[in-house]
């Protein structure tokens, strides 16, 4: 694991340099520089359409799947450029996992959902799979609720449970970084709090990048915050600083609710 830097700041897990992204002729990201600290929560905030989700999806190369996307610049994961031709995208995505806006469990049993990742990566032994499934579900704070119905359908769970299942499914492949795209925007307030609690626990072991529309959520859970506007990062600092003493007037206007 990356150690703490000499200046006392946590070392960066991901370093983004001069990143530009185009959808056809439309530029969605402009000269993005960002340092994502290891084992901390980085929040990306900004109004709709400002590029924060697009940016998040560059970190596991999920934008590769969209036609007409061009990307320039560097995204270094532990110093390795993930856009390098030598990068194996499947092993990258295994290291950098993602939780989506809408819970998207597979139409299989709860067990098979969690076991999906380990299975596609070649694990067949039943005993090991059982262990991973239990551990992942416990880690995602879902085990107690589902342990008696592991063979039941995942789509029968509530929205909040489904989202925690998706997190468990992700933890089962032992990622290093977890990307979260508004993970609680489709959930009720109680489920949202549970997810936030979980996110805070997960940062002990994982590097987390979370996109959120909910300013209170960013303030509650994150360590550092980046404010996006029109595809650019306007401000990037410790969350406390961004929310109490923003340097840029546009950041202040946004977090005080004057636009967006």
């Amino acid at each position: 694991m990356v150690a703490t830097g000499p200046d006392g700041r946590q070392a960066a897990k991901i370093v983004v340099e001069n990143l530009n992204l185009f959808y056809g002729n439309l530029q969605a990201l402009r000269d993005v520089y960002l340092r994502v600290p290891s084992r901390a929560i980085t929040a990306l905030i900004g109004p709709s359409g400002c590029g924060k989700t697009t940016f998040l999806r560059t970190l596991n190369r999920l934008n590769d799947l969209i036609d007409g996307v061009r990307i320039s610049g560097k995204v270094l994961l532990d110093g390795q450029d993930i856009y390098d031709a030598a990068t194996d995208v499947t092993s990258l995505r295994r290291r950098v996992g993602m939780v989506f806006q809408k819970p998207n469990p597979f139409p299989m049993s709860i067990y098979d959902n969690v076991a999906y990742g380990p299975r596609i990566h070649g694990l067949r032994q039943r005993r090991l799979l059982d262990e991973i499934v239990e551990k992942s579900l416990r880690r995602a704070a879902l085990w107690e609720e589902v342990k008696d119905r592991l063979r039941g359908p995942a789509v029968g769970l509530s929205g909040g449970q489904q989202q925690r299942l998706c997190i468990a499914r992700l933890l089962a492949v032992q990622p290093e970084v977890i990307l979260m795209d508004e993970p609680s925007s489709a959930l009720d307030p109680v489920s949202t709090l549970r997810i936030e609690e979980l996110i805070r626990e997960l940062k002990e072991e994982y590097t987390i990048v979370i996109v959120t529309h909910n300013m209170q959520q960013a303030a509650r859970v994150s360590d550092v915050t980046a404010f996006f506007l029109n595809g650019e990062i306007i401000e990037y600092d410790a969350t406390e600083v961004v929310f109490t003493r923003p340097r840029d007037p546009r950041t202040e206007a946004y977090i005080t609710g004057r636009f967006g």
Partner: peptide, 21 residues
């Protein structure tokens, strides 16, 4: 739903594997 394909790909599955499984 497209989100199911993305979920699988984001776990490190190949496209062929995603289609089958």
């Amino acid at each position: 739903p497209y989100t199911l394909r993305e979920a699988s790909l984001a776990l490190g599955a190949t496209k062929a594997r995603t289609i089958v499984s």
